[in-house]
Simulated assay, not measured.
Amino acid sequence: MAETVLKAADAAPGGAVLSDELRAGFKGAMRRLASGVAVITANGANGPLGLTATSITSMCAEPPTVLVCVNQSASIHGALAVGQPICVNLLARDQQDVSGAFGGKLPPEERFGVGNWEPDHNGVSRLVDAQANISGTIDQLTPYGTHSIVIVRVEDVRLTGPVSPLIYQDGGYL
């Protein structure tokens, strides 16, 4: 088996400079990581906002907390702030259409037309037939590179149906 080892270019003052080779290698490595798919929702000034995300993980059980990474250029990003409610909707295997709609196939104002949505206890849109809905409040928001790390303190969890998650890897669904 061939092995490729890539390293960052010489560090410049203030941080490392990534070579094109390392950047491409990193993207290739991340494409090999299978991830569950979710739609993150929040309330914006003009109504509900949402985006498809795969950078989600449980952080701790005491207190129940999840970590979500959101690109700072995403339309939902401006609505994210400490103390604001948010909902993480874990998608089921048959919800590729929802993932696509919130992943950019539809403009933001048309996305909630795909799937059956209702407000959670905070008034944030939750997908009725998602694998799970995790509702909570943003406890911490930390910018890092092109993204923000969003730490959500969980307030409510709703489970639906059998475990049958939508999984994304290498640019497609498994």
Rank of each mutant, 00 (worst) to 15 (best):
M1D: 10
M1V: 14
A2E: 12
A2M: 12
T4A: 09
T4Q: 11
K7L: 09
A8N: 07
A8L: 09
D10V: 11
D10L: 12
A11H: 11
A11E: 13
A11D: 13
A12Q: 15
A12W: 06
P13W: 10
G14K: 03
G15C: 01
G15I: 02
G15Y: 00
A16N: 11
V17M: 05
S19H: 03
S19D: 02
S19V: 01
D20I: 07
L22K: 05
K27A: 14
G28P: 07
M30Y: 07
M30D: 03
R32K: 14
S35Q: 11
A38V: 12
A38L: 06
A38H: 11
T41F: 06
N43S: 13
N43T: 15
N43V: 12
A45F: 03
G47W: 04
P48M: 02
P48E: 09
G50A: 02
G50R: 00
L51E: 01
L51R: 10
L51W: 05
A53N: 09
I56G: 05
T57G: 14
T57Y: 08
T57S: 15
S58Y: 00
S58R: 02
S58A: 03
M59L: 15
A61S: 14
A61W: 02
E62G: 10
P63Q: 05
P63Y: 01
Q72E: 01
S73L: 13
S75D: 14
G78D: 12
G78I: 05
A79D: 06
L80K: 02
A81V: 03
V82S: 10
V82D: 06
V88P: 12
L90T: 09
R93M: 10
D94R: 14
D94E: 14
D94Q: 14
Q95D: 12
Q96F: 03
S99P: 09
G100W: 07
A101V: 04
A101N: 02
A101D: 04
A101K: 04
F102M: 04
F102T: 04
F102D: 04
G103S: 05
G103V: 01
G103H: 03
L106T: 04
P107D: 01
E109V: 13
E110F: 06
E110C: 09
R111V: 02
G113V: 06
V114A: 01
V114C: 02
G115P: 03
G115I: 02
P119C: 08
D120K: 02
H121E: 12
H121N: 10
N122W: 14
N122A: 13
G123F: 00
G123Y: 04
G123K: 05
V124Q: 07
L127T: 07
D129V: 10
A130Q: 04
A130F: 01
A132I: 10
A132E: 09
A132R: 08
I134Q: 04
S135I: 11
S135N: 14
Q140G: 03
Q140D: 10
L141W: 05
P143H: 01
T146Y: 00
T146H: 00
I151N: 08
I151Q: 14
R153L: 10
V154T: 15
V154R: 07
E155N: 13
D156W: 13
R158M: 08
R158A: 15
R158F: 05
G161C: 06
P162L: 08
S164I: 06
Q169N: 11
D170M: 07
D170R: 13
G171H: 07
G172Q: 12
G172C: 10
Y173Q: 05
